[in-house]
Design a protein around this nucleic acid. Sequence first.
DNA 1: GCTTGCCTTCGAGCGCGCTCGAATCCGTAG
DNA 2: CTACGGATTCGAGCGCGCTCGAAGGCAAGC
Lengths: 160, 160
Amino acid sequence: MIMATDVLIEQLLRVPEHSGMSTIATLHALLDDSTIEASAAPKSVAEAAQLVGLTAHTLRYYEQEGLVRPARNSSGYREYSAFDLRRLVFLTRMRVSGMTMHDLKRYIALVEQGDPTISERRTIMLEQRERIRRQLRGLELALETTEYKIHVYGGAPDGS
Amino acid sequence: MIMATDVLIEQLLRVPEHSGMSTIATLHALLDDSTIEASAAPKSVAEAAQLVGLTAHTLRYYEQEGLVRPARNSSGYREYSAFDLRRLVFLTRMRVSGMTMHDLKRYIALVEQGDPTISERRTIMLEQRERIRRQLRGLELALETTEYKIHVYGGAPDGS
DNA sequence: GCTTGCCTTCGAGCGCGCTCGAATCCGTAG
DNA sequence: CTACGGATTCGAGCGCGCTCGAAGGCAAGC
């Protein structure tokens, strides 16, 4: 939960409203690695950073940690493809939901090893789902508590 | 999101099921500083830590930061009253929902200054509510993403 | 009286996830 | 030709929230 996180959440939240697609189709377009090249031109590190709500520094750090492998142009500049961007969206969502860099690196390493690791990846995602659900319960409790305080401190001129 | 957090969430989650009270009444009993002394005997630092899902070290740290002020017995040992315990529950919930130590210290400082600071505290809680709501949205997106992956990785022997 | 175990204070250390700055290189505009 | 913005690598540093260990005190059991 670092500074970047707030920006990140803001950015990622506005993703779903870009078309008349169903939720599942949107997710597919956003996340499935086989639906590549929807938008042709690759992005520079700064553009990619902006799109995904991180800094260029952080994107380079993620690469260093093996989480993404953008191509390079003839000058050695990074070029983020749609594939890379989808990967970044996935990474940021997992980070937002509290998956550690350690676990994320492990997961991505499995992804890069291909099909034989699918069942292991599935296990990781099942655990991740449990973590998220626990967090949701914790957050809802915190929300109740916060609303209780607001109530005690005198009504709610904002919100019902 | 440190090690303690997981334990902490586990502990705090089981609080609501202890009686036939309504949600609001439960919250009141758990959080309102005027409903003191439901359970008489004060707790030692280790007991308090266990109850709230933190370590004794962390409780001492919180005290050092001015977040709680447990009384001391004749030997200088800490004695956590029901008041203190409720305070701790509040603190942990705020921490779970991502409020920083910095903000929490500020908030508690206001609490200790009494009534004149109520409107300021209310503002803080309104902001806190917004932060929690943003986090909830982010988490829900992460949950969808995770479930999408689970789906892609082949059905859900666990959960529908 | 001694051991055991939990309490005390204090200050240093740590793991995480960035974050930043220095030094250098590329590419376009004037 | 020069200047400038943005790219590169590298390694060091940082803020947060604990976390730990040393050195010693208190209280109950044998």
